[in-house]
Write a protein that binds this DNA or RNA. Structure first.
Lengths: 225, 225
DNA sequence: GGGTGTGAAGCCGTTCACAGCA
DNA sequence: TGCTGTGAACGGCTTCACACCC
């Protein structure tokens, strides 16, 4: 599992590794030390082959008798997806969604720290939420640089989306998680991940309609992409 | 564009149609009546071929001179993805995320109506948020049936995820949007869409790390999937 | 027998390349 | 010339099928 081969890991596998790890930590907490591919598969509602494929890609070998060693696997996944020193995250836009994310993510992930939030609301600026201080937008450059923030989660209103993204990137952010319905573009060297809740909801609505009007088999989609 | 051919439309295309429609409504509001595939592509940051493919799949033909007629295209997309009489949605779990979604979605989409929220918090039950009444969990069956709710958005804590999903489906919900980190399984005839924010964030973190340690070109991923 | 590991095949969605048209 | 529409090639991911091993 050298530098080069890590880069070859498909996006989808990276996503599943993140999920495997959390699942493994849960079963590990119950005292289990080993696990079979089909057990992981069952938890994730995917196939055992898929699990073995993913583990093959990260170069982990299981034991034929007992399956995979949970502890070692968790550590290996960590070596692949975590940064050794962790990464800092800022939330841009402390509306309901920004607040939800702050609440949901802060203090939970070992290696990802939400260290700042930015908003335009005078009532929020200067306050702390879940231990995360909120600053005005004019402080972005200063705080991002000082804290060495590498990831920005954007939850501002659509009208502000593009400007906020530009501000974040100019300040030095290298990864953008865009929860705005506005499609973005980023310069080379910056990673962009987008998720649009309205699209998801409309998609569910579409398939509910279609399922209702026929005997089309059920389908499962997991997103994150 | 008959019944059967609609079902063949790929998931990804359905997602993009939802996005095209919103983009088209925006440019339409500016007085534009026609649009070229490359213009749509530019807004969405995708390729013009992709746009034409999607429109080909829904059987819409443009004009070689002027491109696509915006009004007609919006209507066609509506015919495909909307239910004629609309669909009703309930939010399960009125925490920050549930509140954000309620706020974000209520009254916005023409054909999707958030008509109820469910929570266990005594302080929220009986209240209305954004005009959406909040009920206790024991009312799920009654309200879903009475209001004919077909879609459930699940934002409860992980521990409650599975039970809430089962409750919703037993009550008659036909589509689940799962924002819980717990992978779900649904019976045939129910559509499931899942999105896990932690996975997305860890994925961004991973690629930021990788980009930082090399000259790997930037990548764009859009999710909903 | 019941696991793992993996080449090969299959599937799905995107992109290429180009024909056709005003 | 500049656009649309589309067969064909391509690429990425998943699944099949099976070798191998305790």
């Amino acid at each position: 599992m050298n530098k080069e081969s890590i880069k070859q890991i498909p996006h989808k596998t990276i996503e599943r590794l993140s999920q495997y790890r959390r699942a493994l930590l849960l079963v590990s907490a119950k005292g289990k030390t080993h696990i079979f591919s089909h057990e992981i598969a069952e938890i994730q509602h995917i196939t055992a082959v898929q699990v073995r494929r993913d583990l093959m890609l990260i170069g982990y070998s299981g034991d034929l008798r007992k399956g995979y060693k949970i502890q070692a696997l968790v550590e290996l996944i960590g070596q692949i997806i975590d940064s050794p020193s962790g990464q800092k995250v800022a939330v841009f836009g402390l509306g309901n969604l920004g607040m939800a994310l702050t609440h949901y993510l802060s203090g939970r992930r070992e290696n990802l720290y939400i260290v700042a939030a930015f908003d335009v609301d005078e009532h929020k600026i200067g306050q702390s939420f879940e231990g995360v201080p909120c600053y005005g937008m004019e402080k972005v450059k200063e705080i991002v640089a000082r804290e060495n923030i590498t990831i920005g989660i954007i939850t501002v209103p659509a009208e502000e989306a593009k400007a906020t993204k530009n501000l974040a990137i100019e300040a030095g952010v290298k990864g953008i998680l865009n929860y705005t319905p506005v499609p973005m573009e980023v310069p080379e060297g910056v990673f962009l991940e987008e998720y649009d809740m309205i699209t998801s909801l409309e998609k569910v609505a579409f398939y509910v309609k279609e399922l209702g009007s026929s005997d089309l088999e059920n389908t499962k989609r997991t997103a994150s992409k």
